[in-house]
Every structure is written in C-alpha cells, then in structure tokens.
Simulated assay, not measured.
Amino acid sequence: MLTFLTDLFKPQAPKAPPITSETSMNFDAPEVAPFLTRLANNPRFGLPADLAEQIASDLSGMELDQTRRWKVEGDFDGAPVMIEIEAFMDDIDAPDLTFFGPDATVAEIDRELIAFDEATAG
C-alpha cells in the first residue's frame, strides 16, 4: 500500500505529444545525410547524434518500391518528441522521405525542407 501511495506522488516523465501531421520531400540518396545533419543542427531539435548516418546507411540497402520506417525519440523546444521517418524508394537512389510528428515539429521540419531545397537547387 505504501508503494502505491508513494508512486502516486512521483513526478512522471513528460510524454511526447501525439503524431498529428506530416510533410515529405523526394531526395537523391546522397542528399539525405546532409539534410538530416542540418535538421539535427537546428537548435530547436535534440535528435540522436547518429541519426543521419544510421538512416543514410539503411537507405543504401533499399531496393526500388521498398519502404522503411524509423521511430526517432528526441526533443523539440526542450520537450520530448517522437518523430517517425518513412522512406519509400520510388526511383533508383531517390527516396521519398515523409516525416510524421506533432504539428509544430512538422512545421519546423517543413521549413528546413524548403530551406534545404532552395539551398541545393542553385
């Protein structure tokens, strides 16, 4: 009984908000790691250090029309966040990446996608 009562008053770790939004972009495979590195360097995010390396490595083994999905636990504006990244290899070495997460998180990812596209288009 005492354990039950003390558990009631323990502070709970904050939980990530639910996934409610998505954004996507088609990449050439060599662009994936630079984009994910750029995203990880965004001061609003706290993402795993090996995110770009891990996903780029996993993409190198994907075949045409194959789909793969990663769940990424991190922080956004100092609060826990869960981001899901789905890659669909819709052309040879050209994955379409879709990012799923809470609205504000996805909005920031979308801003990064647009900035990355503008920077690499020129």
Rank of each mutant, 00 (worst) to 15 (best):
T3R: 15
T37N: 02
F9Y: 15
V72C: 01
E118S: 11
P30W: 02
P102H: 13
P80V: 05
E63W: 10
F100V: 00
P17V: 05
D65L: 15
D93P: 06
N26T: 15
Q66R: 10
R38D: 05
D90F: 13
A49V: 13
P11W: 12
T3W: 14
I19T: 09
E73P: 06
V106F: 07
I109E: 05
A115G: 11
G101C: 01
T37M: 09
Q54Y: 12
D91I: 06
D77S: 10
D7C: 14
P43N: 01
P95Y: 07
F100H: 04
F27K: 03
F100S: 06
N42C: 01
K10M: 13
L8E: 14
I83E: 04
R111M: 04
Q12G: 11
F88L: 14
P11H: 12
D28S: 14
M1Q: 14
I85Q: 08
A104R: 02
E63H: 14
E84G: 01
K10Q: 13
V32S: 02
A87M: 03
S21A: 10
P18S: 07
D96G: 11
P95M: 07
F88N: 12
A40Y: 00
M82E: 07
A40S: 10
T37P: 08
E73I: 02
I109P: 03
A29L: 13
L113T: 01
Q12S: 12
A87C: 06
P30T: 06
A13N: 08
A119E: 03
D110T: 03
I114T: 08
I83L: 08
A52R: 05
M82I: 13
A49M: 13
P80H: 00
D103F: 06
T3I: 15
I92T: 08
R44L: 09
G101W: 00
A29Y: 10
F4Y: 15
P14W: 01
A115K: 12
F116E: 06
T6C: 11
S57C: 13
L64H: 14
E84R: 02
R38S: 10
F45C: 04
F88W: 15
D75N: 12
I55Q: 10
E63Y: 12
A16I: 03
I114S: 09
P18D: 03
P11M: 11
E84K: 05
T37D: 00
A79F: 06
T6Y: 14
A52I: 00
T6N: 13
